[in-house]
């Protein structure tokens, strides 16, 4: 029975792997539901504040916030949102690929780039890829709070205020559906006016009590909510991608077990046939 034993062991080990991946799939599925719920809860707020900021950037207030200043682009900043753990398919790689393409395009225009990283995978990637990493946060829990991100964010916002960077983008995954996650780049600073003709004429709000106080508060809230939402959404994407990746792994393991069993049975059959023909041959010789 040539290799019968080895094949048997191999089947066993594949089956063990399959058990693990199918467990991980189930864990990811249950986590996905939770993270997805958090994502959809926060979405209305972040969308509304985004359009409010869009209106504000279109208006002509007597007080221009530092974040509204449109400058010549010499250096830009990226906040990169990635996951802390792997085993989630091409999720992080897609983000990095898109970002690297963008970075090359900027580099050709002689624009330098600062990076703020969120998540272990981004840190690992840029350690080997290179790049000017200014801040990084890792070990963001599933139930991330704004406070966890604020330090990293502050560094980027300050360097915008100080004129070190002229634009700030955030790149993260958009949750399209369970099967599809789309890496997306959004501009955080300077504040982007909403593309709507209705708001293009000269107008301004009535501010109560005064513009400075309101705009300061609103802008800060805006940035926080956008980054927080991006992180929450990325977590939902991570779980969804993980679930799909683990489902594929489980299915592949299943297929592999089938193939190996076939080989094993063939080998067993061959061994038996050989034995019989040896016995028959021996008997005929006698």
């Amino acid at each position: 029975m040539a290799g019968g034993k080895e094949i048997k062991t191999k089947i066993g080990s594949v089956q063990n792997t399959q058990k693990i991946t199918s467990a991980m799939q189930m864990v990811a599925a249950s986590r996905m539901r939770r993270t997805q719920q958090r994502m959809s809860e926060g979405k209305p707020y972040s969308n509304r504040i985004r359009s409010m900021i869009g209106h504000l950037a279109n208006s002509n207030p007597e007080y221009r916030h530092a974040y509204m200043a449109e400058r010549d682009v010499k250096r830009i900043g990226y906040l990169v949102v990635s996951s802390d753990r792997g085993l989630c398919g091409g999720l992080n790689v897609n983000v990095f690929r898109k970002l690297v393409n963008e970075m090359t395009a900027w580099n050709e225009k002689k624009v330098e780039i600062d990076l703020g990283l969120i998540g272990k995978k981004a840190v690992g990637f840029f350690r080997s890829y290179g790049g000017n990493v200014v801040t990084s946060v890792t070990d963001i829990a599933e139930d991330a709070e704004v406070e966890d991100l604020i330090g990293s964010l502050k560094v980027m916002m300050d360097s915008f205020e100080d004129g070190k960077i002229d634009r700030l983008f955030i790149i993260s995954n958009d949750f399209v559906n369970t099967m599809t996650q789309e890496p997306t780049i959004r501009q955080l600073l300077p504040l982007e006016p909403e593309d709507d003709d209705a708001y293009q004429h000269r107008w301004d709000y009535i501010y109560e009590p005064d513009a400075r106080q309101l705009i300061d508060g609103l802008v800060k809230r805006f940035i926080e909510s956008q980054v927080y939402q991006a992180v929450v959404e990325n977590t939902a994407c991570e779980q969804a991608a993980k679930m799909v990746a683990m489902k594929n792994a489980t299915d592949n393991a299943e297929k592999m077990v089938d193939e190996l069993s076939l080989i094993y049975n063939n080998a067993r059959q061959a061994a038996i046939t050989q034995e019989i023909s040896e016995i028959v041959g021996g008997a005929a010789a006698v």
Partner: peptide, 12 residues
């Protein structure tokens, strides 16, 4: 109080 047709306003 805000009625339809109010001027653009931003307040806390």
């Amino acid at each position: 109080g805000i009625l339809p047709g109010h001027a653009p306003l931003l307040t806390g």
